[in-house]
Nucleic acid binder design. Structure first.
Lengths: 156, 156
DNA sequence: ATGCATGCAAATTGTTTGCACTTCA
DNA sequence: TGAAGTGCAAACAATTTGCATGCAT
């Protein structure tokens, strides 16, 4: 599948070249069901064409990020995940105890976004947020305490 | 100034030792006006007692974080900042273009926190959030584009 | 042709860890 | 006295960068 036309056009319009590497990386991100890490993207790209360097992946990711074509999300895993911004907005509730991650509809954050815009004229990038806390199960004491990461991490 | 009694007691009650290093680190965090990086804390501590190692700082910070006595905030600077959780909650709006940071009262996030609790039973750690976006000035085109960090970064 | 893009390897950097020594409870 | 805490240095791992080469426009 080819990257959605808008992404490609965004690149061209800004004067960036559409190299095979960038195409492949875009393809991968576009095809993926969920958000991927740089390493995962690199692996996938190499399955098709083994000579793409990880630094190229990072450089492309940074470019797309700067152009706001992809979002960057820190789920507290020690690396960040990327995803096309075209996708339907969604967010995550991440339990700091058991590590479980729950989806959160974007509508949940819309009021906040709107208030920030109205009161401060601040256009928040609430594209793909991660909110840390304690899930219901862990709160009620029966937490599995599996892969719990401590602390409050970033939303992208 | 001595760390607030509650913090000290929290430590003791959990069975942790109250070593001079931990005291000093707590003092520093407590005295500081704003949130500090691990490196800054280390520097300050060394002004008083030059033999405290950076790894001890990190270990102490992680301990306090685990006990939820301090918050960890990622302002997109490449390192995280720490702060006593006793403090009055506040958050940040960080402009991705000019890098400027604006304070945001906690009341702004309370509705979200409440809704997450009610609907999902999820107790969000909305202690010290950072929300990235475009500030009013930059939106109106007169952005200074000073230290702009690209991408969407985490709240702590 | 010419400057943007890539590959490669080395560097960076915040943070963590292993281990021996120390010290508090 | 014995586990918890510390110092030190080395390890880590994700990401970035310098530079020579290559390719798109």
């Amino acid at each position: 599948m080819t990257p959605h036309a808008t992404v490609v056009e965004s690149l061209r319009q800004e004067g960036y070249r559409l190299t095979p590497q960038r195409m492949m990386i875009l393809d991968i991100i576009n095809d993926s069901v969920s958000h991927m890490s740089a390493e995962e993207i690199h692996q996938k790209v190499r399955e098709r064409y083994p000579f793409v360097n990880i630094s190229t992946v990072y450089r492309t990711l940074n470019l797309l990020k700067r152009l706001r074509l992809i979002s960057e999300t820190d789920l507290g895993e020690g690396y960040v995940r990327y995803e096309l911004l075209e996708r339907e907005r969604h967010h995550h509730l991440v339990c700091r105890r058991c590590g479980e991650s729950f989806a959160l509809e974007h509508d949940f954050l819309k009021p906040l976004q709107l208030r920030l815009l109205k009161k401060y004229g601040f256009a928040a990038d609430l594209d793909h947020f991660a909110i840390f806390g304690l899930c219901q199960r862990c709160r009620s004491g029966e937490g599995t305490a599996a892969a719990g990461k401590e602390g409050q991490h970033g939303a992208d």
